[in-house]
Design a protein around this nucleic acid. Structure first.
Lengths: 145, 145
DNA sequence: TTACTTTGTAACAACCTTGATTACATGTAT
DNA sequence: ATACATGTAATCAAGGTTGTTACAAAGTAA
């Protein structure tokens, strides 16, 4: 029911790639340790991020790189890349209500735009946040401690 | 993954109760036919709506009534009543990232407020729509045809 | 060429939620 | 007592997620 943790892991991956850029390479093994999951899981998600053009990775060669600049990667890009919610499918709707009934006939057409608006409002928030924001926030937290 | 169809069914139920108010009683059997599902499913959801104070139903007595006026029932009320999403749980987050890693240590605290904001934005849209709006829209569609 | 490391992918199991169905208890009206 | 209504639990099937394992393919170093 909740939106898959793939999304949060995707954000974690990109943030980690950026924040360890100068220190060394970020293998899937290394990322998996930071995320506390299995490397195969990371590799699966990274494949999605790569397919969406967010990172560059190559077989046999360790270390991923961001394929775009920090401020050009929004949370919405990651959300779409990891395929957690399809367009207009955040909300499920029951099938085949009774067409002989005015409510049954019209309910889907009536609430679908409302559901769409609600989904778009949520997604709009994600569009307004970049990995740069996340990195900056973590830097800030690290300096405080 | 998608938000349960219980929400859409809940909206359908309340709308049907209102739009058949003058014609007769809306038994769970009647509602189930309009929704195209089993009456036991409807009774389950209606129990939730009753618990949330949105409808009145009584054992052995046929027919549900709205417990509040149309314009006082928002889609958000129904969303909460049918318990499709918990507070701050629209998005899942992975557990126990590595605390020795700056990203692992801070990622949850960093993205949680972002996820909360996105969820609140979605819910805000739902708060701005009432059953009165839905009923009016269906009336409009029925008059066109 | 071999050995090692890396990415990439598939298969499997476990778990949870949802939706559908069935059965039956409880309450009301006749 | 009978018929009909609400209310609830149990069961099953389906689907998605998560985690794990195994192995293929690719690149690099010796």
């Amino acid at each position: 029911m909740p939106i898959s943790s793939r999304f949060a892991v995707g954000i974690h991956i990109l943030t980690l790639i950026e924040m360890t850029r100068e220190e060394g390479v970020t293998s899937s093994e290394f990322i998996a340790a930071s995320v506390n999951t299995n490397p195969a899981v990371i590799r699966k998600i990274m494949g999605m991020l790569k397919k969406a053009g967010l990172i560059e990775v190559h077989p046999g060669i360790a270390g991923a790189k961001l394929a775009k600049s920090l401020s050009d990667i929004t949370l919405f890009d990651i959300y779409k890349a990891v395929d957690v919610v399809q367009e207009n499918e955040l909300f499920s709707m029951h099938e085949s209500p009774l067409p002989d009934c005015p409510v049954g006939k019209n309910i889907q057409n009536t609430i679908e735009p409302l559901f769409t608006a609600a989904q778009l409002a949520m997604e709009k928030v994600l569009k307004n946040v970049t990995i740069e924001d996340v990195v900056r926030d973590i830097d800030r937290k690290e300096q405080i401690q």
